Every structure is written in structure tokens, then in C-alpha cells.
Simulated scan of single mutants.
Amino acid sequence: MSKYHRPPNTFVGQVDIKVGDLERTLNFYQGVLGFTILENHEGKITLTADGKLPLIKIEQPEDIISKESQTTGLYHFAILLPSRADLGTIIKKLREISYPLQGGSHHGISEAIYLEDPDGNGIEIYADTPPSTWKWENGVLPAEGKALDIKGLLAEAEDKEWKGIPSEALIGHIHLSVSELEKTEAFYHQGMGFDVVMRIPRNAVFFSTGEYHHHIGTNIWNGIGAPAPSENSVGMSSFSVVFPSDEAREKVIKKLRDLNYQVKKEEGVFITEDPSGNQIRLVVSRDI
């Protein structure tokens, strides 16, 4: 497991999404990406890579409507793979079945491809570059982007057979559409305790713990003041932030409340919302 996605760090653990056709979506996550079912409870299906750790939950509400554009919510969730060879293998698989990609990039800190599930929920699949090569400057990373070396990645995968998503795969980070950056930064930095690690001025802010390149990304590319989507729209219903201990979670809950952010408890789970209405479940590592 990535050292950035275990205690003592705080990180994103699971993403819950609403879909328009549960069977079609399940065929994608199982048949295309190779996840397996961990739990199927009343039409809510939890998917896993290793048979133990929940990563993605999908459900089809009765009154679901198509994904709404120009709103806040999920920009993409990102699946972290253990190696370049694993990224090359999934690229090879997607090419073989002609599954469309939205793009790819070498960010310096990672190599990534971008696609969507059948409902338009954004997905990044990536492998980190060696942390020793990350160009930290006073606690901040530069925002980089150059062409992805598809040929080199496919060469890494030349002798590898596709056997589904690697068991070590994790939710590496989540990237959110938000309505405004200043309030967003105050929430995630001052309230949730994440460090600001990257900025694209007037466009995006990225946050992490433990000197990871980012666990949470935020952008205003859907427009300043973008509204939250309808509750029954295809898209993200919530994501979890995983704390290393009860004490760490309690400290953040107190800080959020001191800053006048609401934290409620539902069925034993602490829940809050960022200023753009993105719902966050606050959990402890032992509970997952």
C-alpha cells in the first residue's frame, strides 16, 4: 500500500456515486476495469480491488436524472496503480476494446489517463513517479503537464497479461468542481487540516497530508458560483476522508464546528459538507 494512503496520513478512502443504469455501470467497473463486488446491499454495490477494501459504491436511485452540467461535485476520482507497467497494461486493455479516453498527461508527479464511466462520471487512472523526483519548492509543487509517453507505457506492459485491476489499487485522490476557491481553501486547509501543495492561480487548489502531491484537488472550471447539482442527478453522492485515529478525527470535527461548519452524525457516521455542497464522510482507518 502507498505510504501516503495509510496512517499517520489523512487521505480519501471511498467514493460513492449515483448512476443511471446499475447493470450497465457494473458491467463497466467489472468487465472493463476489473473490480469485484465486495457487497451488494439493497441495490447499493460496493466494489473492491483486493476483496477487502471498499473503494467505490454505486447505486441507482429510483428518480435518477442524467448528469447535470456546469455544477459542483465530482470532477473525477483517481485510481492509483502500483506501477507504470500496470498503467501500461490497462491502456493496452482499453485500446483492445476501443474504450474511449478523454486524454492523458505526464504531470511530473504522476502519469495519468482520463476516461468516463457510462454515465459521464470522470475517472483518472494513474501511477506516481518516484517521490524523489517531485520538485518541492517551499512546500509547494509546480503544476506541470506534458505529453504522456504512451509508447513507453505500452512497452512496460508488453509481457503483462490483463487480469483486472491490481489488488493494490487505491483511490489515490479525488478532484472536485467547486463554486469558489477562497472558501474552499479555508474549509480544506483551516478546517480539515490539509496542507495546500499546489495552485493554478484563479483556477485550482490542491491539498494533501504527508507531502503527497495531492489527496484532494479543487477547481472552478464549471464557473465561479456554480450551483450544486440536484440531489437525484447522476454524480457523486459522497466521499470518505480517512483519519489515522479517533483523536485526529475529533480534532478536525472540533475545528470545523469552531469555524461554523456543520458536522452531523448519521447511523454512526460523522458527515460534513464543503462550501460547495460536496458531502464528506469522516471515518477512521480501523473502520475500513
Rank of each mutant, 00 (worst) to 15 (best):
T184E: 12
I109M: 02
S233V: 09
E116A: 04
P275M: 03
K160A: 04
F239K: 02
S2E: 13
D159M: 14
T46R: 09
L282W: 03
W136M: 15
K52V: 12
L282D: 05
E211V: 12
Y188P: 02
S2N: 12
W136A: 09
I271T: 11
N203G: 14
R249P: 07
A143W: 05
S179W: 00
N260Y: 10
K160M: 01
D258Y: 08
H76G: 09
G191S: 04
V196L: 11
L141T: 13
H215W: 06
G193R: 02
L81Q: 03
W162N: 10
P227N: 14
Y4M: 14
T133K: 14
I253V: 10
Y188A: 09
P131S: 06
P130C: 12
I65K: 03
F35V: 09
D274W: 10
E68Q: 08
F243W: 01
P244G: 10
G88A: 15
Y99F: 05
K163H: 05
E231K: 02
Q102V: 11
I271Q: 09
L101G: 05
G145N: 09
T10M: 15
N138C: 12
S69L: 08
T89K: 05
R95Y: 08
G104C: 12
D117G: 05
I113M: 03
M192G: 00
H189P: 00
H5Q: 06
P54H: 04
S208K: 06
S98F: 06
Q30K: 02
K67H: 13
E96D: 04
R24H: 11
E158M: 12
G103S: 02
E62T: 05
I271H: 11
K135V: 07
E180C: 07
I200E: 08
E185Q: 03
D195T: 11
G43Q: 04
P61S: 15
P130N: 13
W134I: 02
A228S: 07
L154W: 05
V12I: 15
H175D: 01
E124T: 14
D21V: 05
T184I: 13
E266I: 01
S69I: 06
L53Q: 06
L101V: 04
E39S: 06
E144G: 01
R202K: 15
L22K: 10
I174A: 04
I91G: 02
D21R: 01
T36R: 09
